[in-house]
């Protein structure tokens, strides 16, 4: 347990520059991009929102910490939790940027199928998560 806490705190410290950098970048972006822009991209339609969230998450790459910060900021900007959930999941499970490397190592067909199913599942998982949360709360 002690070792796990030390390891976790070490990895948290390691990712601190990323967190700081992302927060600084987001604070810049939030000034440049008005709130109406997010409302323009994300409609009121929940299903469409989750697809858009998944698409944005799929084309993005990077540390999962960045996605948490982005997701948290998106929530404060008024984006629905469904879209943010789809974004968070597809950020880590779908890798369009890593697709060439993955297809070269594990096979083209497998990489395509895996990313496609991960994309579809990111929408399904977000819907299920929100439904369960609505029942719980």
């Amino acid at each position: 347990m002690k070792q796990a806490i030390i390891k976790s705190s070490k990895s948290l410290l390691k990712s601190f520059p990323i967190i700081l950098g992302t927060i600084l970048l987001i604070s810049l972006i939030s000034v440049i991009i008005p709130k109406s822009f997010y409302i323009m991209i994300f409609s009121e339609d929940l299903f469409l929102d989750s697809i858009i969230g998944s698409l944005i998450g799929s084309i993005s790459a990077g540390n999962p910490v960045t996605s948490y910060i982005f997701g948290g900021e998106m929530l404060t900007q008024g984006v629905s939790l469904l879209a943010v959930t789809a974004f968070l999941i597809s950020w880590v499970t779908v890798g369009l940027i890593q697709l060439p490397a993955e297809s070269a190592i594990l096979g083209k067909k497998f990489a395509l199928f895996r990313n496609l199913t991960a994309f579809i599942l990111s929408i399904i998982v977000s819907v299920i998560t929100i439904l369960i949360l609505e029942v719980l709360i």
């Binding site: 976790s8 948290l12 999941i89 880590v92 499970t93």
Partner: peptide, 13 residues
């Protein structure tokens, strides 16, 4: 690969 998305050290954040 799907379960790699669950990052236990990043759970506090």
């Amino acid at each position: 690969l799907y379960n790699r998305a669950i990052k236990i050290p990043l759970l506090p954040i």
